[in-house]
Simulated assay, not measured.
Amino acid sequence: MTTLNPYISFRDNAREAMEFYRDALGGDLQVMTFGDIPGMVEDEAEKSLVMHSMLTTADGLVLMGSDTPAHMEYQAPQGVSVSLSGSDEAALRDVWQKLSDGATITMPFGPAPWGDQFGMLVDRFGVSWMFSAGESQG
């Protein structure tokens, strides 16, 4: 089996972001810190940073993330969006509302020219999201 899922890099706030996504999407969040793995800590101040996290929802969505240690170059996410789509408009609207907290709405969630509901936002962590709900998504 092969899977494809987003893996988001953060700078010192991966735990906060992944907990925010868990609260919005539901599911089980597993978190491993740099301090959990022998030899992974180069700076003791970073031992509680997230080396790897994985959020898995009951309906099979998987979102991963980690912190970028200070000795590594960090670039904020750009040019990529996490897309969430489906036929259950109420469920997607609920996630939209939760992720909208502290977000910049780039396109309000509403009717799209192709007949579905569509919206875009950049969440409080700088991650771009696209939402599409409607019969064509089912």
Rank of each mutant, 00 (worst) to 15 (best):
L4I: 13
N5A: 15
P6Y: 05
F10W: 08
F10S: 01
R11A: 13
R11C: 09
D12K: 15
D12R: 15
N13F: 09
N13I: 04
R15M: 02
R15G: 11
A17W: 02
A17C: 01
M18G: 11
M18R: 13
E19Y: 12
Y21V: 08
D23R: 03
D23H: 07
A24P: 08
D28H: 08
D28I: 04
Q30M: 15
V31L: 03
F34W: 04
I37K: 05
I37Q: 02
I37M: 09
P38H: 10
P38A: 11
G39V: 08
E42V: 00
D43E: 05
E44W: 08
A45Y: 01
S48T: 09
S48H: 11
L49D: 07
L49M: 06
T56G: 14
T57K: 10
D59T: 14
G60S: 10
G60Q: 12
L61P: 02
V62M: 15
M64C: 14
M64G: 04
G65S: 11
G65K: 03
S66N: 14
D67W: 12
P69H: 09
H71Q: 13
H71L: 12
H71S: 13
M72S: 13
M72W: 06
E73N: 10
Y74L: 11
Y74F: 13
Y74K: 06
Q75M: 10
Q75T: 15
Q75R: 15
A76R: 10
P77D: 11
Q78W: 08
Q78G: 12
V82R: 09
V82M: 13
V82F: 11
S83P: 00
S85I: 09
S85R: 09
G86E: 11
G86H: 07
D88V: 05
R93P: 06
D94R: 13
V95G: 08
W96N: 03
K98I: 01
K98W: 09
L99G: 09
L99F: 09
S100F: 04
S100G: 01
T104D: 08
I105L: 05
I105D: 02
T106I: 09
A112S: 13
A112R: 05
P113V: 07
D116I: 07
M120Y: 06
L121I: 00
V122S: 10
V122Y: 07
D123S: 01
R124E: 01
F125P: 03
G126L: 01
G126W: 00
G126K: 02
W129L: 00
F131Y: 03
A133F: 01
G134L: 04
E135F: 07
S136A: 12
Q137A: 14
G138T: 05
